[in-house]
Write a protein that binds this DNA or RNA. Structure first.
Lengths: 353, 353
DNA sequence: ATGACATAGGAGAGCGCTCTCCTTACCGCG
DNA sequence: CGCGGTAAGGAGAGCGCTCTCCTATGTCAT
């Protein structure tokens, strides 16, 4: 009788409430609440009686009612802030299908799941949606937010920082502001790539960067340039792409056209690097013999590419997990000060360089 | 003054409630509620007065309070049912990083987002989690669930069907049951692959299938086999993989070992197909000249592969979107009968066959 | 002018829960 | 034997909202 689980639930329509459990257990609603939430002052005997009553009635707590009074929901949001283009379906599918998104989700889940915290996916593009998000955060409909901001001029980070709500960005904000974040030492990653290319003996090195206004992209380029400068390379020809396969292919063609003798190239992410590979093949250049290619991210595309990409590994799952931890700490103690965590990238040598 | 937006909110700590708005507008709480929810019987003049008061107070509705009475949350869950292995982090990262997951999310979002419905990500592995999910669904903490079931013996589909809650599966349930679903005509996909291989003139055809107990995988194999049988191929040597790159590579080696003269192979998903490509390269077999390879899914891996994979395109985003629509229809009208939608796959010819 | 009928808006009862306050019972001590 | 102290559990006030009921005010036909 004590095992059960969900047994005789829903005789009619109404689901059992605390009151029903209380009646069965012969105690007051307050006591049942105490037992269920594991709070002080409960006679061990009653404790058992109550749990039996819970099992017998098939009681399940009503979250809405609970949140109404506690102002907590046990839900954090993964917020994708993507400017106004919310009818741009291609963007959406591309973004979600990108391993980047999945790795973040996986990392967050690894922390959230054991604690029974739900992850809500939110896309916000309009000021209106921003306001609603901040409202949810303040009202306690959302305990916190992990922010994935897609463009530099995004006003949402500022909004969240000003509102003083629990939020953590993945990737540092474009402008400094009091908002916690986790990030990769992108500049160190760029330096790693530079070091590897130099060590290989490359003399004429180029770069395909990402969009210039994205902090991560900017840091990768800067790190790469500075490291090369230390080795005497004062000028690095470079073309900017937008992180897609096609833009990488195009950028590579352009780079090649202007700089025929290139023997090494750093590409700011793997997807563009696979595009670059295609352009190189088309130009009858052998990789890595004629030209070495170093990518960034160590995404699944790196492994599938031919030759497999030498790339900079991004511990995105760990970063997201740490972000979740920061967020939860902040939720538990709102006075916690703004924190950041920077992760070190590593070089993964494969066939392309 | 009428523009505003979020203006003088939070003077102290307490957030503005309906009551506050009512006071400012000089009407009753009920009227404000009517206006906000756009219900009948509102004097157009008051209408405006109320909206001004909303703007002035910076009022934002409290979802918990609302759900408590409406028993609706405007949230549906994407449920990933993954057996007991919830500490198996490698699984998680692999699953989430797989484009499959992202494409589903993207498809769901394209329908959910315009309606302002949140998507909650839920992983359930234990009976306990199953019970909690059903509870949330019944209590109205979750308006509905989209189910991604990862293994054939999963008891969750049955549970949801029996509970009669709003739920839609992506991919048909392993056993027939009264549960709505959207699916791909996997058998037709297999037939498409068979047809293409035959049309190419392949004589000795093999197959790398997925796990036998997964319905999608089973249907692909069956469709492929039956179509070939119609062309006189009574026996198709085949090896089963588990949908990963490595398992594909291994399966290809094994297949090759037992059937040296193979000139065509159907691989049940693209990821395994890229593995197969690696094994073929290692065996010094040219694709498609020596042996043609047809994959399945048209994932991003298909494009990145060398040669690019000829594959069967899976309109996963559309399927997920349709699933979301079915679900919402069911949420609006609980008496709606169980429905299913089957999508047709298409052949995408690239370099590998 | 009078009554039948619609229609706008207010009053107030909950939704299911948590948590503060208070009563009651019990302990040990002077 | 009476008193302060403590611990256990009940009573009940809300949390912010929706929605049913009801009243006040028109509007029109008789």
């Amino acid at each position: 009788m004590s095992s059960g689980g969900t047994s005789n639930a829903t005789p009619g329509q109404r689901l059992p409430t605390l009151e029903d459990v209380a009646a069965v257990a012969g105690v007051s609603r307050a006591t049942v609440s105490r037992v269920i939430n594991g709070i002080r002052n409960v006679d061990p005997q009653l404790h058992e009686v109550v749990w039996n009553a819970v099992a017998q009635t098939g009681y399940l707590p009503n979250r809405a009612a609970r949140s109404l009074v506690t102002r907590r929901t046990g839900t954090v949001a993964l917020v994708v802030s993507d400017s106004e283009t919310h009818d741009d379906d291609p963007f959406m599918s591309r973004f979600f299908a990108d391993p980047y998104f999945g790795r973040v989700v996986g990392g967050l889940m690894s922390v959230l799941r054991p604690k029974g915290i739900q992850l809500a996916l939110l896309m916000v593009g309009t000021p209106d949606a921003h306001a609603r998000l901040v409202g949810d955060l303040r009202q306690g409909q959302l305990d916190g937010a992990v922010l994935l901001s897609m463009y530099a001029e995004d006003t949402l980070p500022r909004l969240l920082a000003d509102a003083g709500v629990a939020a953590v960005m993945i990737g540092r904000p474009a402008r400094p502001m009091p908002l916690s974040y986790v990030d990769l030492a992108n500049d160190a990653g760029g330096a790693l790539a530079a070091g590897h290319l130099v060590a290989r003996g490359c003399q004429r090195i180029g770069m395909i960067s990402g969009p210039v206004d994205v902090p991560a992209s900017h840091d990768r380029s800067t790190g790469f340039r500075q490291a090369l400068a230390r080795h005497g390379h004062a000028y690095i020809p470079s073309v900017a792409g937008n992180f897609t396969h096609d833009s990488g292919e195009q950028a590579m063609r352009q780079l090649l056209a202007g700089n025929p003798g290139l023997d090494g190239v750093f590409v700011a992410n793997d997807l563009m690097a696979t595009g670059a590979l295609a352009a190189l093949r088309e130009a009858d250049l052998r990789v890595p013999d004629d030209i070495a290619v170093v990518g960034f991210d160590d995404s699944s595309a790196a492994l599938a590419a031919r030759p497999p990409l030498t790339t900079i590994r991004h511990p995105l799952e760990d970063m997201a997990a740490q972000g979740a931890r920061l967020l939860l700490a902040r939720v538990d103690d709102p006075d916690l000060r703004v924190t950041s965590a920077i992760f070190e990238p590593t070089l993964v040598v494969r066939g392309s360089a």
